[in-house]
Design a binder for these strands. Structure first.
Lengths: 213, 213
DNA sequence: GAGCTTGTCACATAATGATGTGATATTTTT
DNA sequence: AAAAATATCACATCATTATGTGACAAGCTC
C-alpha cells in the first residue's frame, strides 16, 4: 500500500546522500521519492515525485538549500522541509526558518534522529537540534529583553510611552489614565530627556523597535 | 565520585514526582538533588542542594513554575531549567522561555526523553518538544513576516515610513531623500488612508510593532 | 533632614503634524 | 488606449507636539 510518508533528499555529497537514502529505504514507514545532488529543479522535482517531506542540505552547488526552500514553499507550502546541514550560524538558521523550513538538524546528530524527525514534522512538530534551538531562543527578538528596563524609565513613563506607541494622542492618554494633559506633557518631556530624543516616534523606536529588527 | 549531574525536581503531583525522581536515581549519570511539591522556596532550596539542572512543572500550588524560574534565574543564572508541563499554549511557552527556562518538554513525551534532555542542556542545547518548537517558530516575531508586504504600501511609502519610524521629522525625510516637504506630506497622507490611522506613531505601530510583541 | 526622584498639575509659545484641495508626469493594469 | 495607481509638487489652515519655566507633595537615599 502507499500511505507511506514520501521523503525526498537533497544532498550534494554522494556518500551521505546514499546513506540517508538507504535509511529511508530500509524503514517501513517511509518511502524514498527522489534523491538529488542539487536543488535547482526543486519545484519540478516536487511536481514529479510529490514528496511529503524533504530533507535539504544547505550548501549545494548552483543554489543554496535556503533559496531552494524559499522557491519550493512559494509553490508547495504544504510540503515539509527539514534542513540537514553542518552550519549552525545564526544567519543561516534564521534565514532557513524564515524561508519556510520546519526543522533544522545538524548533520552530526541527524542520522540517529532522522526518522524521528520526519515523523515529528508529519505530526505537526518542528524537529530542531537542541543546540540550534538554543540559538533560536537566544535571538534577540525571542528573548523579549533589550526592551523596557534598560533605559531606566519609570513604570509610569513606560506606561505612557506604550499608550503613545499605539497611536494615542496626548489627550487620549490623559483621558485613558485620568491625568491632566499637562501631566502627560511632563512625562513625555522627561522621557525625551532620558532617551535623548525629540519625538514620540523616536522614543518608540528606541525602546520598542531598535533591538527587534 | 561526584561529577554526576545534579538534578532537582519540582512537581506537585506526588506520583509523577516519584516516577521522575526514580528515573534520575536509577540513571548512572545523574543524581537527585532534591524533589519538591512547590517552588515557593526555590531559591533557598537551590542554595541548599545546588542542583545543576531543574525539572520544573508549571502548574503548582502557591506559585507557578514560571514565576519560580524568574526568581531563581535572578539569583542563579547558571542553573539550567527544563519546564515539564502539560501546557502548550503560546503564552505559557513564551513566558517560560522569557523567564529563563532553557528547555520545554511536554509531559506526554518527557519521560522517554528526560535523560537526553538533561544531557542536552548540560551540552549547551535547548531540548524542546517538537510541537513546542513549532509553536515558537510560528510566533510572529520569529517568522520575520507580518511586517512590510501585508499592507500593500508601495516601496516608496515604506521607505518614508521607515525613516519616520526612526524619528526623523518630515523635513529631515525630505532632505534625506531629496524630495519636497509637501511630497512627504502627500505620502504620509496616503499611508494614513491605506492603514486607516491618523499619526505617524500609529502607522509605525501597525506596520513595525503590532505583530512583534 | 537635606537632596533627589517621581507623579502630578499649569501656562505660554514656536515648531511640527494632520488634513483638504489641486495638479502633473510616469507606470502599471485592464 | 483608457483607467488606475504612483511619485512628485504647492498652498492653506487648524490641531497637536515640543519645549521652557515653574510648582508641590510623597517617597526614597544618604
Amino acid at each position: 500500500m502507499s500511505n507511506l510518508i514520501r521523503v525526498a533528499i537533497y544532498e550534494d555529497n554522494a556518500g551521505l546522500r546514499e546513506i540517508l537514502a538507504s535509511i529511508i529505504r530500509d524503514s517501513d514507514e517511509f518511502e524514498l521519492s527522489g534523491e538529488f545532488a542539487h536543488c535547482l529543479d526543486v519545484v519540478r522535482n516536487t511536481k514529479a515525485f510529490s514528496p511529503d517531506v524533504i530533507i535539504m542540505d544547505i550548501d549545494m552547488p548552483g543554489r543554496s538549500g535556503i533559496e531552494g526552500v524559499k522557491e519550493l514553499k512559494a509553490v508547495f507550502p504544504e510540503v515539509e522541509v527539514i534542513m540537514n546541514t553542518v552550519f549552525d550560524d545564526d544567519d543561516r538558521i534564521f534565514n532557513a526558518l524564515k524561508a519556510g523550513a520546519t526543522g533544522y538538524l545538524l548533520k552530526k546528530n541527524s542520522l540517529a534522529n532522522l526518522l524521528t524527525a520526519i515523523k515529528d514534522v508529519k505530526n505537526g512538530g518542528a524537529p530542531i537540534s537542541p543546540s540550534i534551538a538554543r540559538k533560536v531562543l537566544q535571538m534577540p527578538f525571542a528573548t523579549g529583553k533589550g526592551t523596557d528596563e534598560q533605559y531606566n524609565l519609570t513604570e509610569r513613563e513606560i506606561e505612557i510611552l506604550k499608550l503613545l506607541s499605539k497611536g494615542l494622542s496626548y489627550k487620549m492618554v490623559a483621558n485613558d489614565i485620568n491625568i491632566s494633559l499637562d501631566t502627560v506633557r511632563t512625562y513625555v518631556k522627561r522621557i525625551y530627556e532620558k532617551l535623548h530624543v525629540h519625538s514620540v516616534t523616536e522614543a518608540v523606536h528606541k525602546v520598542f523597535i531598535e533591538n527587534k529588527q
